[in-house]
Design a protein around this nucleic acid. Structure first.
Lengths: 208, 208
DNA sequence: TCGCTAAGTCATCACTTGTTTACATCGACT
DNA sequence: AGTCGATGTAAACAAGTGATGACTTAGCGA
């Protein structure tokens, strides 16, 4: 087994040497997928550890508990989602960004983040992050609708943005649902962008 | 305590006497709520039994297993959902029916049926019922869009109907989500019908 | 009233869950 | 070498989980 002495490997996926930060990343990645796809209580910590190729006890070492790991996933999703939609200034940009978010490419991680926002453990802290992210996300969509600022604070626009968000989440959920609902499940970005534009325009476009 | 000999009570909610059909109903009702709100694996059979005011073992007696009870809930939801939307012949009728479905009144049962379609146990039979109901529901919406029959079979219309369904499911989910997302969570039928009409019209209205 | 059957109860099983504990191993520093 | 803290491993624990089978009770006709 003679481990290579030049253990500056630090490869993210195949790193064999002892690298705490790396195993943390591995655990987070596996956990995110499991939590998003199967829900909180349906995922077992042993499965997460197995996916990461790591011992179960390390979950508790690095994240204190299953709930701690879930919160970490949620926080990660919040940061990543908060970063991605800041660039969409117009409605068209928003549609394109959201379509990519829900239907890939690089589908591996994107849509999982959305799913995560629908999964609930019983934990208050996690649910707070979840609700906060959802609210922020919807408000960002309202802003991108290009209305005036006082419009954004109106409950009617908020409601409409949250309904648009509901659509995104519903699609993400149905696409990920164990048994795929066709044609929705296997429609790509190209096929999804049209209808999605119709929805978001109908909900958020300024009234003429 | 001398139990009244004329035990023809058989009241659905307060029935104390031994009534198999009634306890079955009670179990189904409690289970539907639990499964819909908390998901499959997060609900414990003991909680269901406690809600129904019934002994835990009766779940296995009447439904063979926890999964059997879940399948029964799903089948019940399928029948009830299949019955409710047959009446909507026009797009406006559809919007009104769906709005009621997701936002009450008599919210107690309606939206739970929708939520149930998003909850998955690992069971194949249950998932089959679930997928089947979703497909049927979306197709019904396409039919109500008032297009010609050959249009309904087109994948584009199917996709659009499924996206509309996604919106309904997403809303139901966000409204039921443990911590409510305002204003969506507490908006009634009146406030929801407008935006919902916009969405469904944008998705399903025949192109001019 | 007796006795049978359906309906419900109780104790307990086998198993899974998240978590913890005790131990082994690596890498670095003196 | 030898020590030490960080990292990882394996085994076990305690609390629950769904399920089961033997027992008790209610209802009802003979």
């Amino acid at each position: 087994m003679h481990a290579p002495p030049h253990a500056v490997d630090a490869d993210a996926t195949t790193g064999k040497s002892r690298d705490a930060a790396n195993t943390r990343r591995l655990l987070l990645s596996s956990a995110r997928r499991r939590f998003a796809q199967d829900g909180y209580s349906a995922t077992r910590v042993r499965d997460i550890a197995a996916d990461a190729g790591v011992n179960v006890a390390l979950i508790n070492r690095y994240f204190s508990s299953k709930e701690g790991l879930f919160e970490a996933c949620l926080a990660h999703a919040r940061d990543e989602l908060g970063r991605s939609d800041g660039s969409s200034a117009t409605l068209d940009d928003l549609v394109e960004a959201l379509t990519r978010q829900v239907a890939g490419p690089a589908n591996g991680d994107r849509s999982l983040q959305l799913l995560l926002l629908l999964r609930s453990s019983g934990d208050e802290t996690a649910d707070a992050i979840r609700l906060n992210t959802l609210r922020y996300f919807a408000d960002q969509m309202a802003v991108a609708a290009g209305r005036s600022v006082e419009d954004v604070s109106s409950d009617d626009l908020r409601l409409r943005a949250q309904i648009a968000l509901s659509t995104m989440l519903g699609i993400a959920l149905l696409r990920a649902s164990s048994t795929g609902l066709e044609p929705l499940a296997s429609t790509g970005v190209d096929g999804l962008e049209g209808p999605l534009r119709d929805v978001i325009t109908a909900l958020l476009a300024p009234r003429l």
